[in-house]
């Protein structure tokens, strides 16, 4: 009798562990939306045509969605494809404008265990894929809390150095410790929980839903074609000179 109970107990423990491991590998999907801020102020008193262009880009930005797929080991962040936009010229206008609000990479893969990331970025119609260490945001967790997606979120302040503009950018982020995965939208990560809201100088990024997905795996780019970060820095220096001639 004792032997039977022991076998059943062992089996139960094994089953629970198996479920936990399987669940840990499950991929979750976070949908983010963006809200541009401080865009119209510099255009006050300027041509109406300039203001109209920016208003339309803000409207376009507010309809965009960004997707973060994540599991325990890695995550992938990208913009959701926009379907049915007839005018390719205006699509390009709005897409490039929104990019200057967010400064997001085209795609970003976070290797959580390795504490590194791979990003994709296009300059002058050439796609670059770069691997680097995770950004160090020097996070300071504050006491402020609020409810986001029915979960308790904590505030943190941080900053990072933008290589292109050579400026330090202040960030306010909100993260959920009850989802203990160190990832978030774009480059923002490193807090003890999923980052669900980020305040940047020109945009606020907010998570609007989290779903569990069964068949969306995160496929990393081919490691052999990756540029390293020092090569990327040199590239930026060269391209910055080119842009200054603009």
């Amino acid at each position: 009798m004792f032997y039977k109970v022991k076998t059943i107990f062992t089996f139960c423990v094994f089953y629970v562990c198996l479920c936990f491991c399987a669940n840990a590998q499950n991929t979750h999907k976070v949908t983010y939306k963006i809200q541009p801020i401080n865009i119209m102020e510099p255009l006050e008193g300027q041509r109406k045509s300039y203001q109209d262009i920016m208003r339309k880009s803000i409207e376009y930005a507010e309809n965009l969605e960004y997707i973060l797929l994540f599991n325990q080991k890695k995550s992938h962040f990208s913009q959701k494809k926009v379907l049915q936009f007839d005018n390719s010229y205006m699509k390009d206008v709005h897409e490039s404008t929104v990019k200057s609000f967010t400064n997001f990479y085209d795609e970003i893969f976070l290797l959580i265990e390795e504490d590194s990331l791979i990003f994709k970025r296009n300059f002058f119609n050439i796609n670059y894929q770069v691997k680097r260490d995770n950004y160090d945001f020097d996070w300071e967790i504050e006491n402020d809390t609020k409810t986001i997606l029915n979960l308790k979120a904590y505030m943190a302040n941080g900053k990072y150095h933008d290589l292109i503009t050579d400026k330090s950018i202040d960030i306010e982020a909100w993260f959920i410790p009850s989802i203990p995965i160190k990832t978030g939208p774009d480059i923002f990560s490193g807090l003890p929980g999923l980052i669900v809201e980020v305040h940047l100088p020109k945009v606020i990024i907010k998570a609007i839903k989290i779903d569990e997905v069964t068949n969306d795996s995160i496929k990393l780019p081919d490691q052999e074609v990756l540029m390293n970060y020092s090569e990327y820095k040199s590239l930026i220096m060269r391209l910055n000179k080119k842009v200054k001639e603009f």
Binding site: Y50, M54, S96, K99, S100, T165
Partner: peptide, 18 residues
């Protein structure tokens, strides 16, 4: 320039698109 203060690698595509 009005919105970003300068032309740089992050926004040069905007100038071309406009």
């Amino acid at each position: 320039i009005m919105t970003d203060g300068q032309i740089n690698l992050s926004n040069h595509r905007r100038v071309l698109a406009y």
